[in-house]
């Protein structure tokens, strides 16, 4: 009888702690979402470090990211090659210095690319509460905030992504770093610096030209 009571108490305790944890994540995500909702535009430098099994060494690239919520996104790589990518809704335009060709295609027709872009947009959007439907969210640290997102089975990223760790700035208004671990064993670290929030963005950021500094 005593054992049964112990088990019941233990079970009750587990249930309560799970519920507590869930409400904790919700509260935190809501807080982040509220803070980030004020951000309408972002301009930031980035460094991307990719550890891919196909290469002997990490691949490092540097450039700039511009975001104008809700629809505009541009990704300008300066090193090691010059490359620009613009996203407007479902349409993607790409340019690279070597080929000097502009390529345009639809995200819906490129599943791999589509998943990657969807991932990036999600982390930058700040709409984290809605992510609970597609990810299991774990709080790694509360100060500064570090969250881990693991795709659930119905998420298209489930087959590719093992987990994503998102590191926030102290003021929780924006991201400091994103670490993506893939199921293949490859991983990517994106680090942001010189972040400018809600500042006017140079119109050239939305052009496929290599002159963005």
């Amino acid at each position: 009888m005593r054992d049964a009571i112990k088990i019941a108490i233990l079970f009750l305790g587990l249930t309560v702690s799970c519920a507590w944890a869930a409400s904790d994540v919700n509260t935190l995500l809501l807080r982040l979402e509220t803070k980030m909702s004020g951000v309408k535009s972002i301009e930031t430098d980035f460094t991307q470090e990719k550890m891919l099994s196909v290469f002997n060494q990490p691949i490092i690239s540097k450039g700039k990211i511009f975001i104008q919520k809700p629809h505009l996104f541009s990704w300008h790589v300066r090193l090691p090659v010059r490359y620009t990518m613009l996203i407007k809704g479902d349409i993607i335009k790409q340019w690279d210095e070597e080929s000097n060709h502009v390529q345009q295609f639809s995200l819906s027709r490129n599943p791999g690319f589509s998943i990657a872009i969807a991932q990036m947009k999600v982390w930058f959007s700040g709409a984290y509460v809605s992510l609970l439907k597609n990810y299991a969210v774990k709080i790694i640290s509360e100060n500064p905030v570090i969250l881990e997102f693991v795709p659930i089975q119905s998420n298209p990223a489930f087959n590719l992504v093992k987990g994503v760790k998102v590191f926030f700035e102290k003021d929780e208004r924006y991201l400091r770093e994103i670490r993506i671990e893939e199921k293949s064993g490859d991983s990517t670290i994106l680090t942001f610096s010189s972040v400018k929030l809600n500042m006017p963005i140079n119109p050239s950021a939305w052009e496929l030209k290599p002159d963005v500094q």
Binding site: Q48, K50, L52, S53, V54, F55, I59, S61, W75, V77, P80, V81, Y83, M85, D96, E98, G112, F113, I115, A116, I117, Q119, M120, L160, E182, S184, D186, T188
Partner: peptide, 16 residues
Amino acid sequence: RQSLLPGGSFMMPFLR
């Protein structure tokens, strides 16, 4: 070049 793109790593098994 593909490896540098966002999501490029997802395409790597295919390109290999």
